[in-house]
Design a protein around this nucleic acid. Structure first.
Lengths: 333, 333
DNA sequence: CTGAAAGCGCTTACAG
DNA sequence: CTGAAAGCGCTTACAG
């Protein structure tokens, strides 16, 4: 089908040199006489030679390809991370293989196997939770891996995140200062380490510091979707909560609209803080007050870290923590 | 770095057969005695053998990899298309290489070259407009290509879309019926064929049918972003328009919020219809009335078409048109 | 600075 | 039904 146009052999013959020399020119190897280099380069241009990355990958055992494991690319947070990753990958001449891995089923391991079969040089993991199966498999092949905006139970691999616990504590503090006695925590599954050990922990710390009780009836688990946020509205109202802090923007948007639809005035009667500062936070009305995090940068820094790993350069910092902030918008007073 | 665990040679030796036989078993070739097959499979399982896709790709000249060219994965419309594409790709055991190609600069050609270097079997193109440079390059290599939710000037490659012209005509008809005399058309660049020849054409047709004048002052060009929609507000008001139809949801969300912020009541004083029915249309307040299109399916059908192309199976239909509809929500009366 | 040759891990005719 | 061998298009020591 594809007409494998010109090979390294063609340019070697045409330029009157060996394949090895062509290879050196293509790869920018210094040990080539300038005149030779020019001659070869001319032929390359003339023949419009483009090296076959597959052959190169087989011979060198490096594919300049990295796998991006991501549960759902239509999620704004993940998509913005992916954008940062892809941009930096491009800079360093890596390609991204998308590995959509729905976290709710067991396809993660299969997806990973496919990636390994493709001989990716490394992996970037985005997601709420790494399944045990996947972690096991990952460990067994010792593939360079970076976690972007994601927390692994083990914490042995490099990662880039904000300090979720601190950010959630601060956000909860704001609600506490506004006098709320019953503040809800709207989470994804609490089996996800990032929720249980980081975000929930920050929320609880703020309550404890304020002398408020920890009431389990104020902790809700959704599935990160707009719908699950919307569907939570009645339960939330029944809990007598007067404010909520939400772990992701899609659920927060759903919740906000649910509240509004059931006649609750936000922020007058109920305050909401979300936590990803994705594009969505500007689109709702009122706009969502949010913990701010540099999502694009988290992705970019993660990919940069992976390129270092692959080049065997030292990482200044294994567990990078970027700065977070808070943006007061329309859902807080 | 990577320990290339076991090769086909290892399992051949262990199973007491030739590499060729192992290859046949792995590829499900029928010409293997059941007993042999079992024996080999047992060794494969025992050694946990996973074929090296790179070597396979080199030998067979097929990589089971397709390139996905997409301008911005953080755009909801594109992301939902990508999701459909990726899901079907997974079913047919294809991997997706993400090729982010900002349409505003010239990196498209480079990105395509990278894809070709990686020996992808085919390409799915998502985007507002294919640059001439890219089209040229694409044509010169005759790579199987499918356009997903996207229009190419030539229209020679297979594509999956809705009937944009008809959809925009119908949507404009609705606004006409509501008595609007000045209906704005909020577009991306009019140099983009999909806008000029399809969406704008449908809008204009409705106006002509209704005996309304075509006023260029009512046609606006943004860059598809929320910000560009928001920034258009004042101009739009100055145009004396009382309704608008918008080519994508992010701009529509920006416009809606811009109108609301400047004290315009939507839909009482101004009606808005958007056209992608992405998740965003539910998140705004009021929720956006929208042309509905099966975005996920457009992606899925596109990828399915590509798999057929790659298997040299006939395509029932080269230019697939899926059904569209209209969903009345809060921004129309 | 340059070339000959082996090898990367597979698939694919070709024989039998 | 199975195997021996060539070949996919490169890179990489090794020599010189």
């Amino acid at each position: 089908m594809e007409k494998q146009a010109v090979t390294i052999y063609d340019v070697a013959r045409e330029a009157g040199v060996s394949m090895a020399t062509v290879s050196r020119v293509v790869n920018g190897n210094a040990n080539v006489k300038p005149a030779t280099k020019e001659k070869v380069q001319a032929v390359i241009d003339k023949l419009n030679y483009r090296p076959n990355a597959i052959a190169r990958g087989l011979a060198s055992r490096k594919t300049t390809t990295v796998g991006l494991v991501v549960p759902d690319i239509t999620n704004q947070y993940f998509a913005e991370l992916a954008r940062g990753i892809d941009d930096v990958a491009k800079m360093y001449n890596y390609q991204i293989i998308l590995a959509g891995a729905d976290e709710s089923n067991q396809e993660g391991a299969e997806v990973l196997d496919n990636l390994l079969g493709k001989q990716v040089d490394g992996i970037i993991f985005i997601g709420n939770q790494l399944s045990d199966k996947v972690r096991e498999r990952l460990a067994s092949v010792d593939m360079p891996t970076v976690f972007a905006g994601s927390i692994d139970r083990q914490g042995t691999d490099p990662s880039v995140n904000i300090n979720y616990q601190q950010a959630f504590k601060e956000a909860t503090d704001i609600l506490v200062k506004h006098g709320h006695q019953r503040i809800a925590f709207i989470s994804g599954s609490l089996n996800h380490v990032i929720n249980q050990e980081h975000k929930l922990a920050g929320y609880q710390q703020a309550l404890v510091d304020a002398g408020l009780p920890l009431d389990k009836a104020l902790v809700f688990q959704g599935d990160y979707s707009y719908q699950s946020g919307y569907a939570m509205t009645n339960q939330l109202r029944a809990s007598k909560a007067t404010a909520a802090i939400v772990v992701n923007d899609e659920m927060a948007a759903g919740l906000l609209n649910g509240l509004t639809d059931s006649g609750v005035q936000v922020p007058a009667d109920f305050e909401v803080i979300t936590s990803n500062s994705s594009k969505l936070t500007e689109m709702t009305r009122p706009q969502l007050s949010t913990i701010t995090q540099p999502i694009y940068d988290i992705g970019a820094v993660s990919m940069r870290a992976l390129t270092k790993l692959l080049a065997h350069e030292p990482l200044d910092d294994d567990q990078v923590t970027l700065a977070h902030g808070f943006s007061k918008r329309g859902t807080t007073r």
